[in-house]
Nucleic acid binder design. Structure first.
Length: 424
RNA sequence: GGACGGGUGGCAGAGUGGUCGAUUGCGCACGCUUGGAAAGCGUGUUUGCCGCAAGGCAACGAGGGUUCGAAUCCCUCCCCGUCCGCCA
């Protein structure tokens, strides 16, 4: 959510910044100015009337205490009370209308974010490693996985439907090893605290991190309870501190969490249907930071490095993409994607999205910091995958495959797999 | 799921219709005192909104109601505790 006070002074600048995302983004902001003016006019009027009532009610009390008659004041205030009730209702309505619109306005892109309308406008900022070379035609993961008996897509479809995967044997073990490895790396090397959160989420938390109200159709909802399945651990972990005022010396708060993630992929029908590039359920290790407002851009850079460390330790060739304004997620002010080269599907696959939300989420969830002078300010929140599954599995299978269909286990994972060096 | 008891400021804990945004204690900050500290004394110490300002409005789990006036009375919901039931 954008800052109303800031918008009052900088409405046109905000509108221009949103136009860098899309015409729709700027249009979403347009009605806010008038709605806000109406709120303020009503508030001034109703506050004055309430003051009148408060003064008069005290007088009633004083007269009664002295045994005097107060029926004239009481009669007069009855009318004022009705007027207040009517204006209050109008004010609440106006505020709700303003809030409703504001919740659909995306964040302002940071000045360091390049222009661009879509993925083609993203800028590669660095690359690590070189694409693996093969003296045979590398196979896609679904062929490798099926032949090794570690990936069973047909049976997963039998119990859930298309877009679900089932890992078996060494495939399941590999995933567990990866989770363990990533959590160890982030907790022991990078200073994150491990968190195990709920993944059934209420509407307030979903609104706090920006999934609701705009993206309801992207998520799974429960039939008999007002709860949603988490699309990412970002939601429960960031919302841990919803409605709190943190002391500056508590920051930065760095948390990592392994959770399953559930996505309907409603807008992606027909895309990436083969294999497990795009699935409805996957595991992910997520990194979340809550930081002081003046630290968030430094913390953003180090967050990306923390995620990259996973891929480097696994020896996977990847590139870091700075997203352009048109490709930026709804809440993000700035975002880097990490993409791994996958030779089987012949594509760069996104395994991490590292975003700085500045105060956008904090404002929605009322998450504040008290600085050394005792002033409260909205905290800044960040998160990034460190990293996300399904695609990480794909990358390992496809990059470490051998001509005979076996898959080499990277050194870093062998301690987590009883020393296993190759899946065959 | 059933029964009962609770939810008030950083914490503890008063307040059951009228100068209560809230007694008090602890904690914390600043000042005085001191060679320095402790003690003591004094002052201050929730948050949001409106307003150029003076100042005003709102909030005692959330939402509704009664009333001229609600922390206080009524209703609904949420959360916590205890006991019972069920259960991994």
């Amino acid at each position: 959510m954008l800052d109303l006070k800031h918008l009052r002074e900088n409405f046109d600048a905000a509108s221009t910044a949103l136009a860098r995302r899309s015409p729709e983004a700027a249009a979403a902001l347009a009605p806010i100015r008038d709605l806000d003016a109406r709120c303020r006019a009503l508030q001034i009027e109703v506050d004055a009337l309430k003051n009148h009532r408060n003064v008069a009610s005290k007088e009633v009390g004083a007269r009664k205490a002295k045994g005097q008659d107060a029926s004239a004041q009481i009669a007069a205030m009855k009318e004022v009370g009705e007027r207040i009730a009517s204006l209050d209702a109008q004010l609440r309505e106006a505020e709700a209308a303003r809030e409703e619109k504001l919740l659909f306005v995306p964040n302002l892109p940071h000045t360091s974010v390049p222009d661009g309308a879509g993925a083609e406008g993203n800028r590669e900022v660095r690359r690590w490693g070189a694409p693996a070379q093969f003296d045979f035609a590398p196979k896609p993961h679904w062929e490798l996985g099926e032949k090794l008996g570690i990936l069973d897509l047909p049976r997963a479809a039998k119990i859930s439907g298309s877009g679900f995967a089932c890992l078996r044997g060494a495939g399941a073990r590999l995933q567990r090893a990866l989770l363990d490895f990533m959590l160890d790396l982030h907790t022991k090397q990078h200073g994150y605290t491990e968190v195990w959160p709920p993944v059934l989420i209420n509407a307030k938390a979903m609104t706090g991190t920006g999934q609701l109200p705009k993206f309801a159709e992207d998520m799974y909802a429960l039939k008999d309870d007002p709860l949603w399945l988490a699309p990412t651990a970002e939601v429960p972990v960031t919302n841990l501190y919803r409605n709190e005022i943190l002391r500056i010396d508590q920051l930065p708060i760095k948390m990592c969490a392994w959770t399953p993630c559930f996505r309907r992929e409603a807008g992606a029908a027909g895309k990436d249907t083969r294999g497990m590039i795009r699935v409805h359920q996957f595991d992910k290790v997520e990194l979340v930071k809550i930081v002081a407002p003046d630290q968030s851009y430094e913390e953003h850079e180090s967050l990306v490095r923390d995620a990259e460390a996973v891929l480097q330790a696994l020896g996977l060739c990847y590139r870091v993409m700075l997203l352009c304004a048109g490709d930026l997620g709804f809440c993000a002010a700035k975002c880097y994607d990490l993409e791994i080269w996958c030779p089987g599907v012949n594509a760069w696959l996104e395994v991490s999205s590292c975003s700085n939300f500045e105060a956008f989420q904090a404002r929605r969830m009322n998450l504040r910091v008290k600085d050394a002078e005792g002033r409260n300010a909205m905290a800044h929140t960040l998160n990034g995958s460190g990293v996300a599954f399904a695609r990480l599995n794909i990358a390992l299978l496809e990059n470490y495959q051998r001509a005979d269909g076996g898959v080499v286990v990277p050194e870093a994972l062998r301690p987590y797999m009883d020393g296993l060096a190759e899946i065959r």
